[in-house]
Simulated scan of single mutants.
Amino acid sequence: MLHSLSGNPCVRLVDGNRSAWCFIFLVFGYLLYLLFGAVVFSSVERPYEDLLRQDLVELKRRFLQENECLTEQRLEQFLVRVLEASNYGVTVLNNASGNWNWDFTSALFFTSTVLSTTGYGHTAPLSDGGKTFCIIYSVIGIPFTLLFLTALVQRIILYVTRQPVLYIHLRWGFSKQLVAVVHALVLGFITVSCFFFIPAAVFSVLEEDWNFLESFYFCFISLSTIGLGDYVPGEGYNQKFRQLYKLGITCYLLLGLVAMLVVLETFCELQEIKKFRKMFYLKKNKDEDQENIVEHDQLSFSSISDQAASLKEEQKLNEPFVTLQAVGSYSTDGSINH
């Protein structure tokens, strides 16, 4: 009866209309969220931008008054050249001119930000050959990085998420969904502590000009791969052990990105999240394989190992009943009951 209802064209049509309306609401909700963000940022940041512009105009006016031999045109040409160099990570300031952008550790830091699509933008290739190589390197490297991270996260999540949840569920008999939710929250808390709060405290000490909020802001902007580039560590004046510091930051960004993906995948595997996401997907026909949902789900790194784990769980739960049936199949005289 249920099978006939699921194959009913009318039922599929209702499900398809519901999915279409949910998708329309999703589109409008996303557009409203964009507009909301634009309104808030414009309201908060526009006054500060206006004050900064006024300060720069006043500073420029004073400088020209104190240096009457310098024309405004020559000053403009000098500032344009300085700003162009600053866009490539080169500065004329004495307190930072010793920080090279293309030594080995800095180049390694640059490649990690490119392949992870973080891209701070404080350093960019200067030569045409470097720009050409960056294009070719990224075309190959970014898909390679996605493949590497997918394979790595699939293996980590097996030991970090699936096996602990299954063990607690079988060992103490708690609901698997409840265990998965609690585990996801605990894992998220540990990740935020180890890759946000603790590194933010460390950066606030190592970076003289950063407070805790600015350090936490850098951690979030980096590990979310936004990479605005307004805060870049290791660029301060007389940074101690700068090359080792840059290498450590590179390792932190890569490990933090993997940890964020593991947490994201853990939450994506929750049944409640799966049901919510499927509200906006196109309904699949009954003849289509369920693997297509996983293959086309760009938010999930799940694999068939999840299904294998479920099968193993069912087998373990059925083992006592199979044993009882086998024992019950023998009669009291030792003969087998057919």
Rank of each mutant, 00 (worst) to 15 (best):
S6V: 12
F25E: 13
P199I: 09
L187A: 11
Q177V: 12
F25I: 12
V153L: 03
S215C: 11
M260E: 01
F216E: 09
N67L: 01
F148I: 02
S4Q: 07
P164M: 00
L244C: 06
S305F: 10
L5H: 08
L34Q: 15
N211E: 09
F197Y: 11
W102T: 10
K283G: 12
P233H: 04
V40Q: 13
V14L: 14
I336S: 12
K286Y: 10
Q298W: 12
D209P: 03
K246R: 15
T123F: 11
L270Q: 03
N95V: 07
D230T: 15
I136M: 07
V92P: 00
K240F: 04
I293M: 13
V40L: 15
V153A: 07
R162Q: 01
Q315E: 08
L255Q: 06
I24M: 08
L146M: 11
F148R: 00
T117G: 04
L282D: 05
S193Q: 08
L317C: 10
T111E: 13
E269Y: 03
Q243Y: 05
K131A: 07
A151F: 10
I293K: 13
N95S: 15
H3P: 01
L264S: 13
A309P: 00
N17E: 01
S19I: 02
G141R: 07
I136C: 09
T123V: 15
S19M: 05
G129K: 05
L70W: 02
I157V: 10
S329A: 09
A326G: 02
T323I: 12
S97I: 14
Y30S: 15
G89T: 04
S302L: 10
N211R: 09
N318E: 15
S305E: 14
L170K: 07
L52A: 06
S193D: 02
F109A: 13
H183K: 02
V327I: 09
S302F: 07
S175R: 06
F301N: 08
C134N: 04
G227I: 08
N94Y: 13
I168M: 00
K246H: 12
L253D: 10
H183E: 00
D289Y: 04
S138Q: 07
K283F: 01
Y237M: 06
Q154R: 15
L70K: 06
N101I: 02
L147Y: 12
E207V: 04
L108A: 14
L34F: 15
L257R: 04
Y159H: 08
L185R: 05
F23T: 07
E313R: 11
F28V: 14
Q298D: 05
P143N: 08
G7K: 10
E314R: 13
F36H: 13
Q325K: 11
G16D: 05
I190H: 01
Q239P: 08
Q54M: 07
P164I: 00
L83K: 09
R277Y: 07
F144H: 02
F25H: 13
S305A: 14
N8D: 14
I135M: 10
G121M: 06
S19C: 05
L51G: 01
Y88K: 11
Q177C: 05
G29L: 11
S335R: 14
Y167P: 00
L93R: 14
N318L: 15
N17G: 08
Q73I: 03
E269S: 12
V11A: 04
G248I: 02
F203T: 09
K275E: 03
D289R: 03
G130C: 01
